[in-house]
Design a protein around this nucleic acid. Structure first.
Length: 582
RNA sequence: GGGGUCGUAGUUCAGUUGGUUAGAACGCAUGCCUGUCACGCAUGAGGUCGCGAGUUCGAGUCUCGUCGGCCCCGCCA
C-alpha cells in the first residue's frame, strides 16, 4: 500500500473553541455520527477530549471519499473553523464547526457491534467482548482520566508526606490464612508454587524493619474469591505503612488524602471523619461498614416486646432471642405486597421472618397477633411517628443485628444520595473471631494485628474479648480501606500464631523469615491499605467497580475480551510437571 | 457452594394457552435529499430463538441438563 503523507494533527477535536474561528486546523478522531443531506454532509469527529462537527459541502474536492466513511472510521480532517449559524448547546464545541477541505482515512472500521455513545443501552457482556469500543465512550474516558489523576495525586501527596514508593514482589509465598491464593507453578522446582500477593503485607512490614519509616505503593493484589459489584479478583490498593506513629497520625494523613482526592471532583470532605467502635457499629447498624446516609438506626425492642402478649415472640424471648427493630419514616403506607417482599428478603438472609407494625386506615396493626391498643401504646411511648413502619426481627442477638442491618440497607437505598459523602472510621475490631467451620480462632484482620494493650491480659482467658488496634475506613457503606497497628514484638507474634492454632512447623515454614526479622530491631509500626478501585467507583458515582477498571473480569472470573483463563499446551504443563485432573 | 434474574436479527426488545411464513425500533445496504446534530423520506437485506437432550402430531414457548451475563448470601485474614 502506498504510504500517504499524514496530515499533521494540531489540536484535539474536543478542544477546539471559538478562539479558533478563522483558522485552518487538522484534527484526528473517530467518526461518531453521520448525517447526510444530499449535497451536504455533517459528521461528528470524536477524540478523547470530545466532539467536533465536521461539514462536508460543495467546496470539498473529493466527495466520493464519503462513501468509505462510516461509524468509527478513523480520520484526519483539516479545514477552516467557522462560527455556526445556529449553535448546538449540547456540545462544548457547539458554537463552531470545521469546514472540511482535506480528509484522510487513517483506518477503516467494520460496522461496530454497538457505538460508544450507546454504552448505557448495551449489555455488559457485549461491552466486555468489545471493551476497546466501550472504552471510547467519553464518560469512560473521563473515568480513566480521573483514575490517572487520582493515582498521580496520591503519589504526589504521599511523596510530600515523606512516603517512599517501593515495589514488592508479585511472585511470593502462599499464606495459610486469608483468601484463596492465585498460584504460579515454579518450573525449576517442580511441585513448588509461588503465589500472587493478596497484599504486600509482610513485605511492607519488612520495609519498616529495614528502616524506611514511611512506605507506600499503588499496587495490584490478587484474591481468588467469588466476585461482587465492588470486588474483582485482581484489584489495586494504595498501600501505606509507617513507623513510630499512632493511629491518629495515620488517620489524619488519610483524611487529608481523601479531601484532596475528592476535591478533584469539587466535592467537599469534612474533617475529621467520624469514628465508631465496631461494637457500636454492629448495635446501631448491624454492619461493620454502615452507610450513614440512611437516616435510621437499629433499635432494641426486646424489653418492649415482652409486654406485647404474642405467643410467638414470647417463645422466641424465652429462648434468649433479642428483638431488633427499624423505624422507617414515611413507610407506613407500604402495601401488603411490599411487606411480603421484605419478609421474603429477611427469610432469604436466614431469618425466621420479618414482623411489621403500622397504622392503617382502620388503626394500628401488625403481622403478628398483637392488640391494636398495645401497638398504639408502643408507638406512643417510644414516640414513633404514626406514619412510620416498624420492622422487627426476633433472633439470637448476632443474627438479629445482621438481619436488621441488611434490611436497613435494603430499604435505605432510596436515601443513598451519591452527592453525599459519609466517611467513617470503624475502630476497635475484635482481634479474633471464632471460625465455626474450622472450630478454631481466626484473625479478624490478619495475624500481624496488634492487640489493644489493655486487653493483653485477656489473651488467654477471653481471646474473643480482646480488641485489636485495627480500623476500617468506610465511605457510604463501602469499605474503602482497612489497617492496623502491627505486632513488632516476636513473643507476641509467636503467641498470636499459636492462638490461631498454626502448627510450629507451619509457623516456621511460612513465617520463619518474618519472625527472624522481628528479632533484629523491628520498630513499632502501623499501616493501612485503601481500595483504589472502590474509591474511584465512589468518586465517579458508578455502581460497579468494573466501570473504572479498563479490562475487568466478569462475576465468574472470566475475561470475555481475551477469553482467559484458557488451556495451555501439554508442553507447558510437562515443563511444570503438572498433570490436570479430569 | 447456594438463591434470584436474564439469554430471540448487528443492537435493544416484543412474541398470547404449545399451532401455519418469528415481529418492532434502532443499526446496516441502496436511492432521494444543502444546515443537520436521535436529520428526514422510500426500498431492501438480515434469525443456530445461547447450547444439548426430553415431552409432544407440533417447542422461541413446557421439562431436565449445560454454558454465559448481572445482583445477592456464603466466601473475601
Amino acid at each position: 500500500m502506498a504510504e500517504k503523507k499524514l496530515l499533521k494533527r494540531e489540536t484535539y477535536c474536543g478542544a477546539v473553541r471559538e478562539e479558533a474561528v478563522g483558522r485552518t486546523v487538522t484534527v484526528y478522531g473517530w467518526v461518531n455520527n453521520m448525517r447526510e443531506l444530499g449535497g451536504l454532509t455533517f459528521f461528528d469527529l470524536r477524540d478523547r477530549e470530545g466532539l467536533l462537527q465536521i461539514v462536508v459541502n460543495e467546496t470539498f474536492s473529493s466527495p466520493e471519499i464519503l462513501k468509505s466513511i462510516g461509524k468509527e472510521t478513523v480520520l484526519a480532517v483539516s479545514g477552516l473553523i467557522v462560527k455556526r449559524a445556529k449553535a448546538n448547546s449540547d456540545l462544548p464545541s457547539g458554537r463552531i464547526e470545521l469546514i472540511a477541505s482535506d480528509i484522510e482515512i487513517l483506518a477503516a472500521s467494520e460496522v461496530p457491534p454497538f457505538i460508544p455513545e450507546n454504552r448505557a443501552n448495551v449489555s455488559e457482556e457485549l461491552r466486555f467482548k468489545h471493551r476497546y469500543i466501550d472504552l471510547r465512550n467519553l464518560a469512560m474516558q473521563q473515568n480513566f482520566k480521573l483514575r490517572s489523576k487520582v493515582n498521580l495525586l496520591s503519589r504526589n501527596f504521599l511523596d510530600k508526606e515523606g512516603f517512599l514508593d517501593i515495589e514488592t514482589p508479585m511472585l511470593t509465598n502462599a499464606t495459610p490464612e486469608g483468601a484463596r491464593d492465585y498460584l504460579v507453578p515454579s518450573r525449576i522446582y517442580k511441585g513448588k508454587m509461588f503465589a500472587l500477593p493478596q497484599s504486600p503485607q509482610q513485605f511492607k512490614q519488612l520495609l519498616m524493619v529495614a528502616g524506611f519509616e514511611r512506605y507506600f505503593q499503588i499496587t495490584r493484589c490478587f484474591r481468588d474469591e467469588d466476585l461482587r459489584a465492588d470486588r474483582q479478583p485482581e484489584f489495586t490498593q494504595i498501600d501505606i505503612e509507617m513507623s513510630f506513629a499512632e493511629p491518629n497520625e495515620l488517620f489524619a494523613i488519610v483524611e487529608r488524602l481523601m479531601r484532596e482526592i475528592f476535591a478533584l471532583r469539587s466535592r467537599d470532605v469534612a474533617l475529621p471523619f467520624r469514628r465508631l467502635p465496631y461494637r457500636e457499629a454492629m448495635e446501631k447498624y448491624g454492619s461493620d461498614k454502615p452507610d450513614l446516609r440512611i437516616p435510621y438506626q437499629i433499635q432494641d425492642f426486646t424489653a418492649a416486646a415482652r409486654s406485647w402478649n404474642s405467643d410467638l415472640l414470647n417463645a422466641a424471648l424465652a429462648e434468649g432471642a433479642k428483638v431488633k427493630g427499624l423505624v422507617i419514616p414515611d413507610a407506613g403506607g407500604f402495601s401488603r405486597k411490599q411487606l411480603d417482599e421484605i419478609n421474603e428478603t429477611g427469610k432469604k438472609l436466614g431469618g425466621k421472618g420479618v414482623i411489621w407494625m403500622k397504622k392503617g386506615d382502620d388503626g394500628f396493626k401488625a403481622s403478628l397477633k398483637i392488640a391494636a391498643e398495645t401497638i398504639a401504646a408502643f408507638y406512643e411511648k417510644d414516640r414513633i411517628d404514626p406514619g412510620a413502619l416498624v420492622l422487627l426481627v426476633a433472633d439470637p442477638e448476632a443474627r438479629a443485628l445482621f438481619l436488621a442491618g441488611k434490611l436497613r440497607e435494603h430499604l435505605g437505598k432510596k436515601f443513598q444520595d451519591k452527592d453525599r459523602l459519609e466517611f467513617l472510621w470503624v475502630t476497635d475490631f475484635p482481634l479474633f473471631f471464632y471460625n465455626e467451620e474450622e472450630k478454631r480462632l481466626d484473625s479478624n484482620h490478619h495475624p500481624f494485628t496488634a492487640p489493644s494493650p489493655e486487653d493483653i491480659p485477656l489473651l488467654e482467658s477471653q481471646p474473643l474479648a480482646v480488641k485489636a488496634i485495627a480500623y476500617d475506613l468506610v465511605l457510604n457503606g463501602v469499605e474503602v480501606g482497612g489497617g492496623s497497628k502491627r505486632i513488632h514484638d516476636i513473643a507476641m507474634q509467636k503467641k498470636v500464631f499459636q492462638m490461631l492454632n498454626l502448627e510450629d512447623k507451619e509457623i516456621e515454614d511460612k513465617f520463619g523469615f518474618f519472625l527472624n526479622a522481628l528479632k533484629f530491631g523491628a520498630p513499632p509500626h502501623l499501616g493501612i491499605a485503601l481500595g483504589f478501585d472502590r474509591l474511584l467507583m465512589l468518586l465517579t458515582g458508578e455502581d460497579s467497580i468494573r466501570e473504572i477498571i479498563a479490562f475487568p473480569k466478569t462475576t465468574s472470573s472470566l475475561c470475555l475480551l481475551t477469553g482467559s483463563p484458557s488451556s495451555v499446551s501439554q508442553r507447558q504443563l510437562d515443563e511444570l510437571g503438572i498433570t490436570i485432573k479430569k
